[in-house]
């Protein structure tokens, strides 16, 4: 909405800010009311107050930070490895036809398989080790980043490449500067998608069996019928991926610094 000097517009703007600020509290309040009114089963649908107590216990027991760091480690390291591999191979397949002929058909077959489908074979390969979990996250991130980079490299303005050639740009600088930065706007979009994919695959990886982690905690709580803890876990996961997405958006805005 416009924030011009028009009086009505300003009033409408203020109202929408107010409604926006009340959205989450209103939802939580409604939930509390419904859960306490016994319209629904309070064991299956615990009120927010119960969830809050469960989260507090979780934090006080010291398990929360263990779970948080285990999950963060998997997501971060998996994202970094998958991104590095995706960008590297994307530059190669996007730039060199022979490399593309060799790898692109294979990647295009593997890419559409949901990473979750690999959980059974990953357990056979790696057991319940950290390697298996990292593998799943890396797998999910890699193909997204690879495809974005591959397309970005192919869309690099040919004129820029010719101009760089005429100026005597060495081969290595051509790849590491002209091609990579030329493709950066596309790569950044791929990376943002990869952030949410890394969380999807994290869920699959931890559900498959782990010894710590936010999703692992959710599963344990479910087995013990601790629904408050389950919802607390879900809220923590939602908050975590929200923060990750927002911080990535802020970084992405600065990554393409010349705009």
């Amino acid at each position: 909405m416009s924030t011009g000097g028009h009086k009505g517009a300003t009033a409408a703007g203020r109202l929408s800010v107010l409604v926006g600020a009340l959205s989450v509290p209103a939802f939580v309040g409604l939930w509390e009311l419904i859960a306490r009114s016994r319209i629904v089963n309070a064991v299956l649908f615990p009120p927010p107050s119960t969830v809050a107590v469960a989260v507090l216990d979780w934090i006080q027991s010291g398990q929360f930070f263990g779970d948080l760091s285990a999950s963060l480690f998997r997501v971060t390291v998996g994202f970094l490895i998958g991104t590095a591999g995706g960008i590297m191979l994307g530059v190669l397949t996007g730039r060199f036809r022979l490399v593309s002929s060799l790898l692109s058909p294979l990647f295009h077959i593997l890419r559409p398989i949901p990473p979750i489908a690999f959980v059974p074979i990953v357990i056979l390969w790696f057991g319940l080790s950290e390697t298996g979990k990292l593998f799943l996250v890396v797998w999910g991130v890699f193909f997204t980043v690879w495809l974005a980079t591959h397309i970005g490299v192919q869309k690099v303005d040919r004129g820029l490449v010719r101009a760089a050639l005429m100026l005597g740009t060495p081969r290595r600088q051509m790849l590491s500067e002209i091609i990579l930065l030329g493709a950066l706007p596309y790569i950044v979009v791929g990376l943002r998608t990869a952030v949410s994919i890394s969380f999807y695959t994290l869920v699959a990886a931890e559900l498959a069996g782990a010894f710590a982690g936010i999703v692992y905690r959710i599963e344990i709580a479910q087995q013990n019928m601790q629904t408050g803890q389950v919802m607390g876990g879900l809220a923590a996961l939602g908050l975590l991926s929200f923060v990750a997405d927002r911080s990535f958006a802020a970084i992405a805005e600065r990554a393409v610094w010349w705009r």
Partner: peptide, 17 residues
């Protein structure tokens, strides 16, 4: 291409970064 020969194109093709 050789660096002792300069070229100016119809579009500037400056490096945007």
């Amino acid at each position: 291409p050789r660096p002792d020969i300069g070229m100016v194109f119809q579009q500037p093709h400056l490096f945007p970064w």
